[in-house]
């Protein structure tokens, strides 16, 4: 983000500690992740140390600190998905993309995440790619599903 964009982003906030999460959520929505630069800017705006901010942000699983890929593959690890083979699905996604959980492919095309629960448990197992929910994804159909995004 550029200087101006940060200013615009901060303008809606009073600059109190209560807003830390809301600010980081806005930053991540814009950049896709929380960069070191963002931590520095937020620190100056809130007058709270970078260490402290980093401590808060890393506590919450939603925040990421590396640049995401162009397509984000999120495998749901909810209980319903687990009993329907979610673990195998997650392993298979990693193999297919050739990366481990949390990593981005070398060409920056895919990154691979897990989510706690997407809340559509009757459709398990579920994989979310970008904004699309793929329901009842079996490993048998995984290659086809991923191909749609290549």
């Amino acid at each position: 983000m550029k200087e101006k964009e940060y200013e615009k982003l901060f303008s809606g906030f009073k600059g109190i500690e209560d807003d830390i999460l809301a600010i980081f959520l806005r930053v991540q929505k814009k950049d896709g992740y929380i960069s070191e630069e963002a931590i520095r800017r937020v620190s100056r705006f809130l007058k709270i140390s970078e260490n402290r901010l980093y401590g808060v942000a890393t506590f919450y699983p939603k925040f990421r600190f590396t640049k995401p890929g162009r397509n984000t593959v999120k495998v749901c690890m909810g209980t319903a998905c687990h009993v329907h083979g979610g673990q195998s699905l997650s392993d298979a996604v990693g193999w297919q993309l050739g990366i481990s959980l949390g990593q981005t492919t070398d060409d920056g095309h895919f990154d691979f995440q897990r989510v706690t629960c997407l809340g559509c448990c009757t459709l398990a197992p579920v994989v979310q790619i970008n904004d699309d929910i793929h329901d009842r994804v079996l490993v048998t159909g995984l290659k086809e599903t991923l191909k749609q995004y290549e």
Binding site: D18, L25, V56, P61, T116
Partner: peptide
């Protein structure tokens, strides 16, 4: 921003306070 423990009252308060 996630975190299962934030369903607990006192943890939720901490989260609300930033």
């Amino acid at each position: 921003a996630g975190a299962f423990v934030c369903g607990e009252e006192t943890a939720q308060i901490a989260c609300i306070e930033g």
